[in-house]
Design a protein around this nucleic acid. Structure first.
Lengths: 159, 159
DNA sequence: GGTAGGTCGGTGACATGTCAACTACGTTCG
DNA sequence: CGAACGTAGTTGACATGTCACCGACCTACC
């Protein structure tokens, strides 16, 4: 067995730092979101995706694409959100297999109520700690990393 | 209601990029770890924490501290790992409330078998995409962000 | 001694995410 | 047409994580 290329000290710092930072940050954002609204981070992500689109009605597979979620996860989550009245689903006329997802008025109200505080939190907990250069660097790092994962990752999980 | 300070385009790019990159990266690392060993990423994290310590026997609250996990999560996870024979727990003689956690030989074998491939994956999927400067920048960003979250975050979740 | 309050850890109910399998429909090509 | 294969989405079993709460123990302080 070949001795693996262990992480050097610098990489170790970056890697463990990234893990801990992300874990803590997303946990805290989630707690705040839950405390101040009736939404979880996942609910929020779905509503953002639905609201971002120009079209009000979005095909489920497009949603999965945008969110980069497994179709199964999306299906389960949409069921829960539908039960809570945040979104609605209807069969698709052009494609008998398809489902079309739409935000309900209640869903729209929910995200509009939650968004401002969430953005504030993201700033307070993260961006306020960074310089403009660091933000720029982070964007580049994220893009490079993502490209790498996409290239090397599992050919097709259950999208 | 004050108009919130929405994210500008640069921040948006960094933020969404970070979310997607991290989600995909950790998912792929998890899939690989699961495919090539009997461990999940969480199991691995626990074993690393236990193995990193100079002492072979570690108090549970120390583990929670190092991992930055809620005590409840740790307790559940240790139960599962104990059932699978990866770790063992014993009452602590100095403190009647305490538990002392220890890696079993099977646990040691498991992490030693899993670690090389995991490091390779982390390199292949992430660090190989970054320059030395970017790694340095990332470490700084992670540290700045973490410090901010720690400072502003919820005073005491259930650690 | 005793009691108030903090700390360590566990438990149960529940929310969420994953995988594998399945149904139903669409597409291609003989 | 129709068989074979691909795609959209759902389902159920299960692993994991969270919250609220409990119980045992420790530490001060009277």
């Amino acid at each position: 067995m070949i001795e693996p290329r262990w992480l050097d000290e610098r990489e170790q710092r970056a890697w463990r730092g990234l893990i801990t930072m992300w874990t803590q940050l997303s946990a805290e954002l989630g707690r705040r979101m839950a405390a101040e609204s009736e939404l979880s981070m996942s609910d929020f992500a779905v509503l953002v995706a639905l609201t971002d689109e120009c079209e009000a009605r979005v095909r489920a597979y497009e949603l999965a694409e945008v969110l980069q979620w497994e179709k199964s996860r999306l299906s389960h989550h949409l069921s829960r959100m539908e039960k809570r009245g945040l979104i609605s689903r209807d069969g698709c006329t052009e494609d008998g297999r398809g489902q079309v997802v739409e935000v309900t008025p209640a869903g729209k109200r929910a995200i509009e109520a939650a968004a401002p505080a969430h953005v504030e939190s993201v700033r307070e907990l993260f961006f306020d700690a960074l310089s403009v250069d660091q933000v720029e660097a982070l964007a580049a790092i994220a893009e490079a990393g993502l490209a790498r994962v996409r290239a090397a990752g599992t050919p097709t999980p259950q999208r």
